[in-house]
Amino acid sequence: MPPKNVIFEKLSSAHLQELQALSRSTFTDAFGDQNNAEDLQAYLDSAFNEEQLKIELLNPLSEFYFAKLEGETAGYFKINLGDAQTEFKAEDAMELERIYIRKEFQNQKIGQKILDNVIEMAIQRKMRYLWLGVWEHNHRGINFYLKNKFEVTGSHPYMVGNDRQTDKIMKLFF
């Protein structure tokens, strides 16, 4: 059972520094061991630099949220609508682009709480499906989404520095 006391805080540009630090640390914790240091650093510098995150935070079709447990930031997620989606860009689809939990908060069902919340957001917005990309070597993530009734519907390339990787595209239809 997911913890009931997780709350979600919608972010604004005022949260930029905390979001940047959290983005860099959670991505490194999740994938640092599986990527070479140069490619990892190049990815962190491009995806999570201040200017890039500011653009994303100011996009009205993207939303970032912190997941807080007992007042402490446990993780975050980002959703994209319409033209902000990295693919498909369908008006009746929503992308879950990022979902990351800090290492010390893992295995507490916070990811499940976030996903349940995102699914509810998609349903309330009358979306036909929710979709995401998950690295093909992230077996824990893939199994998590399969357990939550997502289907693998395709794949696409994803660059981490100069390393061309493959994400599985997974969709949950409503």
Rank of each mutant, 00 (worst) to 15 (best):
K126F: 05
V118A: 11
G75S: 06
S23C: 15
W131V: 08
L44I: 09
Y158D: 06
E97C: 06
D45A: 12
K171V: 05
L69E: 13
A122K: 01
E151D: 12
D45H: 07
G161V: 09
Q52L: 02
I55A: 11
T166M: 11
F88A: 09
I110L: 07
V160Y: 01
D33T: 10
K68Q: 12
M159I: 04
M159D: 12
Q20E: 15
T73Y: 02
L16M: 11
Q41K: 06
Y65T: 08
Y76W: 03
Q85W: 02
A90K: 02
A30T: 14
T166S: 09
A47E: 09
V160E: 08
D39T: 02
A122S: 14
T166F: 01
H139R: 13
L61D: 15
V118W: 00
I99F: 04
L130E: 08
Q108E: 11
L40I: 08
A14E: 15
A84W: 03
G82A: 15
M121P: 00
E95N: 02
A74V: 03
L61S: 13
Q165E: 13
E120C: 07
A42D: 10
V118S: 09
R140Q: 14
K89R: 14
R140M: 06
L44P: 01
S62G: 04
H137D: 13
N148I: 03
I142C: 08
K103L: 13
S12P: 01
P157G: 10
